[in-house]
C-alpha cells in the first residue's frame, strides 16, 4: 500500500487512541476530585499528569498558577493546542479524510460524525457536562474500534492502523502510571496508606473489576502497576500492547524492517519475562520514562521503514 496512506492510517489510530486515553485520564481526575482532598493536593495531581504528557510548560505559559478546572478545560476542549481531546478528534478525522478512499465508508463516517458531534459539546456546561463528554468520547472510541475491526480487510491497512493503536496505548499506559507514581499527593510516598487514587486509576481504565478477578485482594500500587505493565491478558497492559504490536509489525515486514522488528521483540521480551522488582529498582518513574523513550525510538523506526514518502525501496 502507499506509504502515505499507511502513514495516515497509523496516525488516525494513534489520535483515536490518544483521545480515548485523555478521556480516561480526565475521568480519573474527575473521580479524584470527589474524594476528600484539598485543592492543593488535587492540583498536584494535575501537575503530575501534565508533566507526564509533556505539556506542563505550555499549560503554565497559558494559565500560570492554574486550578483543576482550567486543567480539565485545557485537556478536554482547548483547540488552540494539539494535545486536547478536541484536537485529537480533529486530527483523527483529518487523517481519516485523507484515506477515505482506502478505508470502508463506515470507518470514515464514524470518525467524521464523532468530530462533527463533538463540536456540539459545550465546554462551559459544568461538571456534569464534562463528565458526559468524557463518557461520550470513550463510547465513540469503542464505536470506532468496532467499526474498524468489523469492516476492515485484514490487510496492510488494518495492520498499520493496529500498529498505531498499540503503540499509542502502550505509551499512554506508561504515562498514566508515571503520573500516578510522580504525584506526591497520592502515590509513592504514602505507599499502602491510602490506595484510593490507585482504585480510581483502575476504574478510569475499566480495569477495577479485572483487578479484583486477577488478585482477589485489596488495591496496592505495586499490584496495580504489575497488572498494567505485565499482565498478558489485560488489554491495556504494556505487555499486551507490545505483543499485539509485534504481531502486526511481523505482518507488514519489508526488506528494511528487520532491526525494527528485533527491537520490538526485545522490548516485548522484557515485559514478558521481566520482574517488577528489577524494573522498579531504578525507581518506577525513571523506568517508565525509559520505556517511553524506547517506544519513541520504535515509532521513529516504523516511520522510516514504512511510512515516509521518501521510501522507494
Amino acid at each position: 500500500m502507499l506509504s502515505r496512506t499507511a502513514n495516515h492510517l497509523y496516525w488516525m489510530s494513534r489520535y483515536v487512541e490518544r483521545a480515548e486515553h485523555l478521556a480516561r485520564l480526565l475521568d480519573a481526575h474527575y473521580r479524584l476530585s470527589l474524594l476528600p482532598r484539598s485543592p492543593e493536593v488535587l492540583m498536584q495531581g494535575w501537575i503530575a499528569t501534565l508533566t507526564s504528557l509533556g505539556m506542563i510548560a505550555h499549560f503554565q505559559s497559558q494559565h500560570g498558577e492554574a486550578d483543576p478546572q482550567q486543567a480539565m478545560q485545557y485537556l478536554a476542549f482547548d483547540r488552540t493546542h494539539a494535545g486536547s481531546i478536541m484536537s485529537c478528534l480533529g486530527a483523527a478525522r483529518e487523517n481519516a479524510r485523507a484515506v477515505r478512499g482506502t478505508v470502508p465508508s463506515e470507518v470514515w463516517e464514524t470518525l467524521n460524525a464523532t468530530y462533527l458531534d463533538a463540536r456540539d459539546f459545550r465546554s462551559d456546561a459544568g461538571d456534569i457536562g464534562v463528565r458526559t463528554f468524557l463518557d461520550w468520547v470513550k463510547y465513540r472510541s469503542h464505536l470506532t474500534r468496532g467499526v474498524t475491526v468489523n469492516t476492515m480487510l485484514r490487510d496492510e491497512a488494518f495492520h498499520f492502523a493496529s500498529i498505531g493503536t498499540f503503540l499509542e496505548r502502550a505509551d499512554a499506559t506508561t504515562r498514566l502510571l508515571e503520573a500516578r507514581w510522580r504525584d506526591p499527593g497520592g502515590a509513592g510516598e504514602r505507599l499502602g496508606v491510602d490506595a484510593s487514587e490507585w482504585a480510581v486509576l483502575l476504574r478510569a481504565l475499566s480495569a477495577f473489576e479485572v483487578y479484583r478477578k486477577v488478585y482477589r485482594e485489596s488495591v496496592t500500587p505495586l499490584r496495580v502497576t504489575e497488572l498494567l505493565l505485565l499482565n498478558a491478558e489485560m488489554p491495556r497492559s504494556v505487555h499486551r500492547c507490545l505483543y499485539d504490536l509485534l504481531g502486526n509489525l511481523q505482518a507488514v515486514r519489508n526488506s528494511q524492517s528487520a532491526e525494527t522488528e528485533r527491537m520490538a521483540g526485545e522490548l516485548h521480551a522484557q515485559f514478558r519475562y521481566g520482574r517488577l522488582e528489577e524494573m522498579s529498582s531504578v525507581g518506577m518513574p525513571q523506568f517508565l520514562d525509559r520505556v517511553q523513550r524506547r517506544l519513541n525510538t520504535l515509532a521513529d523506526r516504523i516511520g522510516a521503514d514504512f511510512l515516509v514518502a521518501g521510501y522507494s525501496g
Binding site: 506509504s3 499507511a6 498499520f160 521510501y311
Partner: peptide, 9 residues
C-alpha cells in the same frame, strides 16, 4: 512510473 509503497516501488 512508480508509486511509493510500504513494500517498495
Amino acid at each position: 512510473l512508480f508509486a511509493r509503497t510500504t513494500r517498495g516501488p
